[in-house]
Amino acid sequence: MEEIRNLKFSEWPMFNRVMEDDPDVCRRLLEVILDEPVERVENLTTERALEPHLGARGIRMDVLMRAGGKVYDVEMQASPARKLGRRMRYCQATMDTRELKKGRDYDALPDSFIVFICMRDEIGAGLPIYHLNMRCDESEDIAVDHGFQWIVLNASAWDKASAGSLRSLLQYVANGKADGDELVREIDSLVASANADAIWRARGVAMLTYVDEARIQTRIACKEAREEGLAEGRAEGEERLGALVARLLAEGRSDDAAAAAVDAECRQELFSEFGL
């Protein structure tokens, strides 16, 4: 029997497992990224599927966390993130819609943070970290009290970060090398513990395999559709099918996930079931 490989921290099943197993590690990871204190975690969920309203496109969030009245969405992005800015915009809109109840004033919206930890440079400027904030073109002195922050990490540029915990974290995401940083060593220990669970490790590898197969089948389907002038777009199709497969696997429906990757009729039925 072929040996099941170990999962890396940069792969979403492992990332979600580590964050869920020790929410305090997630809190400290955010402190390193944000460079500010994060209060005790009040609620943390992984693989959270959200839909802004019936019939709207749903999204799957890797780690959604609440601490000190603030909301944090942390995404591990190992594959290329096309249309990242618009994706973050939709994540923000979906989070805000969920947070602001009918009849409440806008000041009831909590401060929120969206963090994408990327293996590649999705912005293209060669920086290890990007803070993407709204500003006034006419005057940089004008502050816009929107209450949210978007941050994108580029693990491939870890060696350009200043010495410290952020550099250590980016290096670990990039190549799995755990240096003397305390947080990184704790994360590496949790990764080793999760990989020691052979049943879970096999399921995690299977989930990644299903998603990869789904992407391949989606690319084929999109190519055929483009030839007929009916394509919704490769990137959107991949994300949609990836979200479907992830939700099916999270519910233990591996057979349906496998079928969705290769059977167009079954795939459409499942899209309808989950409102994707």
Rank of each mutant, 00 (worst) to 15 (best):
P80F: 10
P80C: 04
A81S: 10
A81T: 08
R82F: 11
R82C: 01
R82K: 13
K83D: 15
K83C: 07
L84P: 00
L84T: 05
L84G: 00
L84W: 15
G85W: 04
R86K: 15
R86L: 13
R86D: 08
R86G: 12
R87F: 10
R87A: 05
R87I: 04
M88V: 05
M88P: 00
M88I: 10
R89D: 14
R89A: 14
R89Q: 15
R89N: 09
Y90I: 06
C91T: 11
C91Y: 15
C91R: 07
Q92D: 14
Q92V: 03
Q92P: 00
A93E: 09
A93S: 15
T94H: 07
T94P: 03
T94F: 08
T94I: 11
M95Y: 03
M95F: 03
D96T: 07
D96I: 09
T97V: 15
R98N: 05
R98A: 14
E99W: 04
E99C: 14
E99L: 15
E99T: 03
E99Y: 05
E99M: 15
L100Y: 09
L100E: 04
K101H: 14
G103A: 11
G103I: 11
R104F: 05
R104S: 12
R104L: 06
D105E: 11
D105R: 15
D105F: 12
Y106V: 09
D107P: 01
L109K: 06
L109P: 04
L109R: 09
L109N: 06
P110V: 07
P110M: 10
P110T: 06
D111T: 09
D111S: 12
D111G: 13
S112Q: 08
F113L: 03
F113W: 13
F113C: 06
F113R: 09
I114D: 01
I114S: 05
I114W: 02
I114M: 11
V115T: 09
V115R: 08
F116I: 05
F116Y: 14
I117Y: 08
I117G: 06
I117W: 05
I117T: 08
C118M: 07
C118K: 00
M119F: 04
M119N: 03
M119C: 01
M119R: 12
R120N: 06
R120L: 02
D121R: 02
I123V: 15
I123Q: 01
G124F: 02
G124S: 02
G124A: 01
A125V: 00
G126R: 03
L127I: 00
P128H: 07
P128D: 02
P128E: 02
P128C: 03
P128I: 03
I129M: 14
Y130P: 02
Y130A: 01
Y130W: 05
Y130M: 01
L132M: 12
L132T: 03
L132H: 02
L132V: 14
L132W: 01
N133H: 09
N133Q: 12
N133R: 15
M134Y: 07
M134E: 09
M134L: 14
M134W: 09
M134H: 06
C136T: 13
D137S: 11
D137I: 10
D137M: 09
E138P: 00
E138V: 09
E138Q: 11
S139L: 08
S139H: 14
S139E: 13
E140Q: 05
E140T: 04
D141Y: 13
D141E: 14
I142C: 10
I142G: 00
A143E: 11
A143Q: 10
V144R: 07
V144W: 13
V144G: 00
